[in-house]
């Protein structure tokens, strides 16, 4: 079901299945508290990888390491952009963004006083090239660039079905819509990898269904790699290709949803003793 996009949302040059991100032996601690101890994880082009685990397991810390907000004390995070490998630990967040790693946040971190359109256009920042002087004059190339990106952003608005709110200030929008705009802002970066930190937290089942559909659309139509933290097991088991489970800063399991579901270590981490994990059963619906 293609919508006739004029622009691709995916900037990665890799083929599906190739290793895009390799997290090697990452250690992160705050003072004496170890947040991550020896995490190894691979992310492959065009997959949906879910990271799950109990509260405080280190999921968000891992995402923050990838996007450069935290600096791990040991280990490497190698990103393959199709031409060369970059060690993300050595880069600053804005340089990592330039490589095509986009993310959303657990607590919405939109630019509250901007309109939805401006938020999405701000997401295009790394792709805009006009110089300061031509922007001050706003004539010729600078104007054409702004209009070209406006067209691109309209595609995202179309994809996320937020046409009616494009001129609204995001601070005034409902929570579910803000989450959607934040996804759109990350998409505007034409991401090679999209990191989503609890994109469905606090939503009702209808909104969750919409969000799951958007994530699948982005992944299937544009081939964008998605790394997702989510607590709703129904959604996780339904949409992800692979699942990694974190507990107390360690990866305790990794595999397909079915493998993870039956892994005794995972069951123990979640329930403390041996129980059948997740009452939904195999292939349960996510609402």
């Amino acid at each position: 079901m293609l919508r006739g996009f004029r622009h691709t949302l995916n900037s990665s040059r890799l083929q599906p299945g190739e290793t895009q991100l390799r997290i090697e032996n990452v250690h992160l601690s705050f003072g004496g508290v170890a947040a991550l101890t020896g995490i190894n994880l691979e992310v492959r082009q065009s997959e949906i990888l879910a990271i799950i685990g109990p509260n405080g397991a280190g999921k968000t810390s891992l995402l923050n390491c990838i996007s450069g907000l935290y600096k791990p004390q040991r280990g490497r995070i190698m990103f393959n952009d199709g031409q060369e490998e970059h060690d993300l630990i050595k880069l600053r967040p804005h340089q990592i963004a330039r490589l095509g790693i986009a993310r959303s946040f657990q607590n919405i971190e939109l630019f509250r006083h901007m309109t939805v359109l401006d938020n999405l256009l701000a997401g295009c920042h790394v792709h805009m090239k006009s110089g300061l002087l031509s922007c001050l004059i706003y004539w010729g190339p600078a104007q054409r660039e702004q209009i070209a990106f406006r067209e691109f952003v309209e595609d995202i608005i179309d994809l996320l079905e937020i046409e009616s709110i494009r001129d609204k200030k995001v601070g005034t929008l409902a929570y579910g819509l803000q989450k959607r705009v934040e996804l759109g802002r990350a998409l505007a970066m034409k991401p090679a990898i999209l990191l989503l930190d609890e994109p469905m937290a606090g939503m009702n089942s209808e909104e969750k269904e919409d969000m799951a559909r958007f994530i699948l659309d982005i992944n299937e139509e544009h081939g964008v790699t998605i790394v997702l933290i989510e607590h709703d097991m129904g959604v996780v088991m339904d949409i992800s290709d692979r699942v990694a489970v974190l507990n107390f800063g360690q990866k305790i399991a990794e595999g397909t949803p079915d493998e993870v579901r039956s892994n005794p270590l995972v069951i123990q981490a979640y329930l403390g003793e041996e129980h059948a994990l997740f009452p939904f059963g195999a292939g349960g619906s996510h609402d």
């Binding site: 990592i96 330039r98 971190e109 939109l110 630019f111 509250r112 920042h125 702004q146």
Partner: peptide
């Protein structure tokens, strides 16, 4: 109304998010 100005406002509203957006 260009990316320079939006970067300024982004820094005011949410500087961490701005940095992660490549600013």
């Amino acid at each position: 109304r260009t990316h320079y100005g939006r970067a300024f406002i982004a820094i005011r509203d949410q500087d961490i998010a701005a940095e992660v957006m490549g600013i």
